[in-house]
Write a protein that binds this DNA or RNA. Structure first.
Lengths: 157, 157
DNA sequence: TTTGAAACTGTTTAGAG
DNA sequence: CTCTAAACAGTTTCAAA
């Protein structure tokens, strides 16, 4: 049950930073029982190794004028690899896109988007999904509630 | 198209912190053309108002021994409100749970989880979902790829 | 790799506009 | 609500182990 060259201290640093990405180096050092300089070196190493990919503010999209969220199940219409790649490449850049999941099963992609109004959402689907030749079908589900996992909180959805 | 009492500067601060949650106050101030002290006040206010909910490290779960991710579509078996509430309350605390979406449509919940091995995933589903009296059906889709939105990057999946 | 201590940089407070 | 400036805290480097 090990974890690719991470020791106890590394895992604790990761855990703490996943909970509070702005925890000061000092505090991290004390919490893990190492010197601040050592702590700095380790956190840098974790970033360089890609264990920590970045730090992000968790923003309330509603406060930013995007109170609606949806998950859109997308089926690709058996086309060329090129067309699929194009779709995959364009989607993350579309306005309001939070995440794109490529999944196994009946659907090919699951798209998590934010929108300002039902109309904006509808336009998003029509303009960018339905209209795309790679897309065979798109089924939109509104998100009533979105709760993060309580434990380590090891991701950024 | 406004955003609940946020001015231009606030929105820019939020945008920058969503991209880099560790951007120094100095740099934020310069980037937005205000004094560091003012910047500090504003960022604090954004946190207090809940516009910024927190700061988190974005962690590579694979590096932490959880290389598998899945989305599990869950249908609730038309039970009492209490039972649904209990389900809703327990899930975020289950091991490996990243996010729980309550959605409209054929499925009631969409659960985003991480696991170490296919077996661990199977056990998770059997022990915590299939076995739960509130759950009528659970359909697991493996996540092949998960891409974040490129724009503001305004969330933390 | 680790560290303590110095040098430095960024943060925070306070006081005034 | 904003700013400048001073006080403070945290970060980072570096030489040594």
């Amino acid at each position: 049950m090990p974890s690719g060259g991470l020791d106890e201290v590394d895992r604790e640093l990761v855990r703490l930073l996943a909970i509070d990405g702005r925890m000061p180096n000092n505090a991290l050092a004390e919490a893990t029982g190492i010197a601040p300089s050592t702590c700095l070196t380790r956190v840098r190493a974790l970033r360089e190794r890609g264990v920590i990919r970045g730090f992000h503010a968790d923003v309330d999209l509603g406060a930013l004028g995007q109170p609606l969220q949806a998950l859109i199940a997308i089926r690709i219409g058996a086309h060329s690899r090129d067309e699929i790649d194009r779709f995959r490449a364009k989607v993350p850049g579309l306005p309001g896109v939070l995440s794109l999941f490529h999944v196994s099963g009946a659907n090919d992609y699951l798209l998590h988007v934010a929108a300002s109004t039902p109309d904006a959402l509808r336009e998003f689907v029509l303009d960018h999904l339905t209209a795309d030749p790679a897309v065979a079908h798109a089924e939109t589900s509104l998100i009533f509630e979105h709760v993060r996992g309580a434990e380590p909180n090891l991701t950024g959805v």
